[in-house]
Simulated assay, not measured.
Amino acid sequence: MSVGKRTSNPWLPPRWFIHLAWSTHRSLYRLSGGRVGLWRPGAKGWGTLRLTTIGRRTGQPRSVILGYVEDGSHLVSLAMNGWGEGEPAWWLNLQANPDATVDLVGGRRLVHAHAATGDERLRLWAHWRKIDKNLDAYAALRSAETAVVVLVPRAGASDTLPG
């Protein structure tokens, strides 16, 4: 560490609280029939979407609510696992089967996922950094690089499908 430069870990709530918050969010979404729990990203903030993947072990649909930003027609999320260690299950599922479905405020979309690399990753990470000034500090809490996940509309799929 250089002299005069102070680094500190950003505060995170305990893991049990993070799990409880996301579980509550999913329950509100489910109990409201999808009317509560999703929002569009704003100029200075991220939105939320519901991602449904196919379980890599079970072959069954698995859904999770994620934060995202838009990059043209692409949706971009971070495989951060609540800034904890390990890859989130949804990202492992997408690596095994990159085709998925997302539910957005405006409807359902069929997508194909990939991890951003090179210049694409740098550009998208910088976009997230504008939204969250502590992004690099949070990412430093993990021993592995946080994947930037790009959800691309599937070829031949209509932009949005009925929910």
Score class of each variant (00 low, 15 high):
residue 118 G to L: 09
residue 54 I to A: 10
residue 46 W to R: 13
residue 152 V to E: 14
residue 17 F to V: 15
residue 50 R to D: 05
residue 117 T to N: 12
residue 43 A to I: 11
residue 52 T to V: 13
residue 21 A to P: 05
residue 106 G to R: 15
residue 9 N to L: 08
residue 98 P to I: 05
residue 88 P to W: 02
residue 148 V to H: 03
residue 96 A to Y: 08
residue 23 S to M: 09
residue 67 G to H: 10
residue 136 D to W: 02
residue 50 R to V: 07
residue 45 G to P: 09
residue 70 E to L: 15
residue 17 F to L: 15
residue 69 V to N: 08
residue 132 D to K: 11
residue 55 G to W: 09
residue 15 R to Q: 15
residue 64 V to M: 03
residue 143 S to M: 05
residue 40 R to I: 03
residue 53 T to S: 11
residue 1 M to D: 07
residue 91 W to M: 00
residue 34 G to V: 05
residue 123 R to E: 13
residue 82 G to C: 01
residue 120 E to F: 08
residue 9 N to I: 03
residue 154 R to C: 04
residue 52 T to A: 02
residue 23 S to Y: 11
residue 160 T to F: 01
residue 73 S to C: 02
residue 115 A to G: 02
residue 34 G to H: 02
residue 26 R to C: 02
residue 126 A to M: 04
residue 104 L to W: 05
residue 163 G to Q: 10
residue 67 G to Q: 13
residue 68 Y to S: 12
residue 79 A to H: 02
residue 95 Q to S: 05
residue 112 H to Q: 12
residue 75 L to D: 01
residue 111 V to G: 05
residue 56 R to V: 06
residue 99 D to L: 11
residue 70 E to F: 03
residue 76 V to Y: 04
residue 120 E to M: 05
residue 136 D to A: 11
residue 96 A to F: 06
residue 52 T to K: 06
residue 133 K to R: 11
residue 71 D to R: 08
residue 107 G to H: 01
residue 68 Y to P: 09
residue 30 R to D: 15
residue 96 A to M: 04
residue 66 L to V: 06
residue 124 L to P: 11
residue 29 Y to L: 06
residue 81 N to E: 10
residue 122 L to C: 13
residue 136 D to F: 05
residue 144 A to N: 13
residue 75 L to M: 03
residue 56 R to K: 03
residue 85 E to H: 01
residue 150 V to Y: 02
residue 78 L to C: 10
residue 73 S to P: 15
residue 157 A to V: 07
residue 42 G to P: 05
residue 9 N to R: 13
residue 115 A to D: 03
residue 147 A to T: 00
residue 150 V to N: 03
residue 146 T to N: 06
residue 95 Q to A: 08
residue 63 S to K: 06
residue 9 N to P: 01
residue 59 G to N: 01
residue 161 L to K: 06
residue 108 R to H: 05
residue 36 V to S: 10
residue 103 D to G: 02
residue 159 D to M: 12
residue 96 A to R: 07
residue 97 N to P: 09
residue 15 R to T: 14
